[in-house]
Deep mutational scan, measured.
Amino acid sequence: HESKLSILMDMFPAISKSKLQVHLLENNNDLDLTIGLLL
């Protein structure tokens, strides 16, 4: 999960990174759901 998140972070600009982190917190680190929201 950690490395997947790092790769994902590299793919998005800074603003999207903050949104990603907020979504991860709100969704209890449900990375798949977060990716779904961003794609």
Results as ranks from 00 to 15, higher is better:
H1V: 15
H1A: 15
E2N: 15
E2R: 14
E2V: 06
E2W: 04
S3W: 04
S3R: 05
S3L: 06
K4Q: 11
K4P: 07
K4M: 15
L5V: 12
L5A: 02
S6P: 04
S6E: 08
S6A: 13
S6T: 12
S6W: 03
I7S: 08
I7T: 13
I7C: 15
L8A: 00
L8D: 00
L8R: 01
M9T: 10
M9I: 14
M9Y: 10
M9N: 04
D10E: 13
D10L: 04
D10G: 09
M11N: 06
M11V: 03
F12N: 01
F12E: 01
P13E: 04
P13Q: 02
P13W: 00
A14M: 08
A14R: 11
A14K: 14
A14W: 11
I15T: 08
I15C: 13
I15G: 02
I15S: 06
S16T: 06
K17L: 05
K17Y: 10
K17E: 08
K17F: 04
K17G: 06
K17A: 07
K17N: 04
S18Q: 14
S18P: 06
K19D: 09
K19R: 12
K19V: 11
L20V: 05
L20H: 03
L20T: 02
L20W: 02
L20K: 01
Q21V: 08
Q21M: 09
Q21T: 08
Q21L: 06
Q21C: 10
V22A: 12
V22Q: 13
V22W: 07
V22E: 10
H23K: 04
H23W: 05
L24Q: 00
L25P: 00
L25G: 12
L25N: 05
L25Q: 14
L25T: 13
E26C: 05
E26L: 05
E26R: 11
E26T: 08
N27A: 07
N27G: 06
N27L: 05
N27M: 06
N28V: 03
N28W: 03
N28A: 11
N28M: 11
N29L: 08
N29V: 05
N29K: 04
N29G: 13
N29D: 09
D30K: 07
L31G: 00
L31I: 10
L31A: 04
L31N: 01
L31V: 15
D32L: 04
D32W: 03
L33I: 09
L33R: 14
L33K: 13
L33N: 14
L33S: 11
T34W: 00
T34R: 00
T34P: 00
T34C: 09
T34K: 01
G36P: 10
G36A: 13
G36Q: 12
G36M: 05
L37W: 08
L37R: 14
L38G: 03
L38S: 01
L39M: 15
L39P: 06
L39C: 09
